[in-house]
Amino acid sequence: MKVMIRKTATGHSAYVAKKDLEELIVEMENPALWGGKVTLANGWQLELPAMAADTPLPITVEARKL
């Protein structure tokens, strides 16, 4: 699914347009965010693609819901 990742004042957030859902990312498998699992505030887990740590945000990526 397409997910937009952006930086907020409190960390990172994910927006899933198909579900009209925006949630804070509360847990990251990798400190650089990319190439691992993230957990959203509502409990969803997404697998993000591997990208460079300095990838500019906001960005829309293809993520997989676990």
Rank of each mutant, 00 (worst) to 15 (best):
P58M: 04
L21P: 02
A9D: 11
Y15G: 02
D54R: 04
P49L: 05
H12D: 01
E23Y: 15
M28Q: 11
K65A: 12
T55W: 02
E29F: 05
A50H: 13
K19N: 15
A50M: 14
L46N: 00
E62H: 12
A41W: 04
A17N: 08
L57I: 05
N42Q: 00
E62D: 10
R64P: 04
T55N: 03
P56A: 11
D20T: 07
P31T: 10
K2T: 15
D54K: 07
T55Q: 07
K2H: 12
P49F: 07
Y15W: 11
W34N: 04
A50Y: 13
G43T: 01
L24C: 10
R64T: 12
A32S: 14
L66T: 10
N42G: 06
L66I: 14
G35N: 05
E29A: 08
H12E: 02
K2E: 14
T39K: 11
P56G: 08
R6P: 03
L66K: 05
V3M: 01
S13M: 13
E27F: 13
W34R: 02
V3R: 00
A32F: 14
P31V: 11
V3F: 03
R64C: 11
I59D: 02
D20P: 05
A17E: 14
A63T: 07
N42H: 02
K7G: 06
L46A: 00
L46K: 00
V16T: 05
M28V: 07
P49H: 05
K19R: 13
K18F: 14
V16L: 14
L46S: 00
W44Q: 03
T8G: 08
A14P: 00
E27K: 11
W34P: 01
L33E: 02
V38Y: 04
V61F: 06
A52P: 15
K2Y: 12
L48Y: 02
R64D: 05
Q45H: 08
T60V: 12
T39C: 08
E27N: 09
L40S: 01
V38G: 00
K19I: 15
L48F: 04
K37A: 07
I5F: 04
L33T: 02
P49W: 05
L57P: 01
K7W: 10
K65R: 12
T55A: 06
V38A: 03
V3A: 01
V16K: 00
K18H: 15
Y15P: 02
A53K: 10
V26C: 08
S13D: 04
P49M: 05
G11Q: 05
N42C: 09
N30R: 10
L24K: 12
V38E: 02
K37E: 03
P31H: 08
A53N: 10
N30E: 08
N30W: 08
T39N: 03
A32H: 14
M4T: 15
W34S: 01
A50N: 13
A32G: 14
G43L: 03
E23R: 05
T39P: 02
E47R: 09
A41R: 07
W34I: 02
K7D: 03
D54L: 05
A50T: 10
L66E: 04
G43E: 01
A9Y: 08
V3T: 02
Y15N: 05
V3D: 00
P56S: 09
G11T: 03
K65L: 15
G35Y: 04
K37R: 13
L33W: 06
R6H: 09
M1A: 04
P49R: 05
D54N: 11
A53I: 10
K18W: 14
K2W: 14
V61H: 02
E27W: 15
M28R: 09
V26H: 04
K19V: 15
M51I: 08
K7H: 07
P49Q: 04
T39A: 05
D54T: 09
Q45N: 06
K7L: 10
I59R: 06
N30Y: 13
L33G: 04
V26R: 05
P58V: 03
A9K: 12
L21R: 11
K65T: 12
L46T: 00
I5Q: 00
M51E: 03
Y15I: 10
D54V: 05
E27R: 09
W34A: 02
E62T: 14
Y15C: 08
E62P: 08
K18G: 15
P56E: 12
A32R: 13
N30C: 10
L40A: 02
K2N: 10
G36T: 04
L24R: 13
A9C: 08
M4C: 11
L40M: 05
M51D: 01
V3H: 00
R6Y: 11
A41K: 08
L46F: 14
P49N: 00
N30T: 10
E22A: 08
E29I: 05
P56R: 10
L57C: 05
Q45V: 15
A17L: 15
E47Y: 13
T10I: 12
H12F: 15
A41C: 06
E23F: 15
A41L: 06
I59P: 00
E62I: 15
P58L: 06
T8E: 07
A32P: 03
L24E: 15
T39W: 12
N42I: 06
L66C: 11
E23W: 15
M28I: 09
R6F: 14
H12G: 01
A14W: 08
L66F: 11
T10C: 14
M28K: 11
T55L: 03
D20H: 13
A9L: 12
V38Q: 00
H12N: 04
T10H: 13
Y15V: 10
R64N: 10
G43V: 03
S13L: 11
E22M: 09
N42P: 01
P56D: 08
W34V: 02
E29N: 05
E27A: 13
H12V: 09
A17D: 09
M28L: 07
R6C: 10
G43Q: 06
K2G: 06
T60Q: 09
L24F: 10
E29R: 04
G36H: 02
L40F: 03
T10Y: 12
I59W: 07
K2V: 14
V61N: 00
T8M: 07
T39S: 06
A53S: 11
M28T: 11
R6W: 09
E62M: 15
K37W: 15
W34C: 03
E29S: 09
P31W: 07
A63D: 01
V3Y: 00
K18E: 15
S13G: 07
K19H: 15
D54P: 02
K65H: 12
L21E: 06
P56V: 12
L57H: 01
P58S: 03
G11V: 03
P56T: 13
E62S: 12
A41D: 03
E23I: 15
H12P: 06
G11K: 01
P58G: 03
W44E: 03
G35T: 02
V61T: 05
M4R: 12
G36R: 01
A63G: 06
A53R: 10
V16D: 09
A17I: 15
V3C: 06
Y15E: 06
A52R: 10
D20K: 12
H12W: 15
P58R: 04
E47N: 08
M4P: 02
A17C: 15
A14F: 09
I59T: 07
